[in-house]
């Protein structure tokens, strides 16, 4: 049974048909990436998974359970955490308070403490700055915080929306290293990226999205070699 399954999902923003029949699967322990140009529907796909947007047709199935009747906050409780695009941290709260919010749904004190230590191990920078107001962190640190906060919910499936956006190349590499590390510790990852090269180099499998449809899917290594992908997303001639 796959961890996550989307079957022929159609979603709309008003009259705009944003997702035109998306089907994809994510298996336990994988890193799967969704690549595509601006407006292809990558973020929209994530929003339908987290329940922020409800599909008009089709189904989103998490470990055999249809998510249709659940609201966004209930889906979080089922082990899905999202790191929103543009990071979406609580700018006026401190780093520690932000992380605290991530564990909002949990009651086990020792488990929360464990997660906190894990986050601080993954991002030592956050530990150093735990008392600082989040809005004053640098862009890279804010991304770390957003990821750390998502991990505080102890998710089984982590959804990452453009983690490389607006970051310096060195930082992008560091962030992707950490994504791999998180995955090796047992968290399944669905990664949405415009930086296709980086995404494909850490992912196991990938889907290519174009105007709301999946046009290509394969293991990451093959996608990297694919002529069309190279032309359109990797900037190679």
């Amino acid at each position: 049974m796959p961890m996550l399954e989307l079957n022929n999902v159609h979603a709309y923003y008003g009259h705009i048909h944003a997702l035109q029949g998306i089907s994809l699967t994510v298996d336990q322990g994988e890193i799967v990436t969704l690549i595509g140009a601006n407006g292809a529907g990558k973020t929209t796909t994530l929003r339908t998974i987290t329940g922020l947007l409800k599909p008009r047709h089709g189904s989103v199935i998490l470990e055999g359970e249809d998510l249709a009747p659940y609201k966004a906050h209930q889906i979080v409780a089922r082990g899905v955490s999202m790191v929103p695009e543009g990071r979406g941290i609580f700018a006026k709260l401190t780093v520690a308070e932000n992380l605290d919010m991530g564990a909002y749904l949990r009651n086990d004190k020792s488990g929360i403490q464990e997660s906190l230590e894990r986050v601080y191990r993954l991002f030592p920078r956050l530990k150093e700055r735990h008392n600082q107001v989040a809005g004053t962190l640098s862009g890279g640190e804010q991304q770390m915080l957003a990821m750390g906060r998502a991990l505080m919910a102890h998710p089984r499936l982590l959804l990452l929306d453009e983690p490389s956006m607006g970051l310096a190349p060195v930082l992008v590499e560091a962030i992707f290293d950490t994504i791999q590390e998180i995955n090796q510790q047992g968290t399944t990852v669905l990664l949405v990226e415009q930086n296709a090269l980086m995404a494909l180099s850490i992912a196991h499998r990938g889907y290519v999205l174009q105007t709301g449809q999946i046009v290509l899917s394969d293991v990451a290594a093959n996608l990297k070699e694919n002529e069309m992908v190279q032309k359109a997303y990797l900037g190679m001639e």
Partner: peptide
Amino acid sequence: RLGRQWMAMREDEDVAETMGIN
């Protein structure tokens, strides 16, 4: 807990929701 829910909602409703807040 409710106070923290309010605080999160005040700061950003969308993010609060993805945090699991009703």
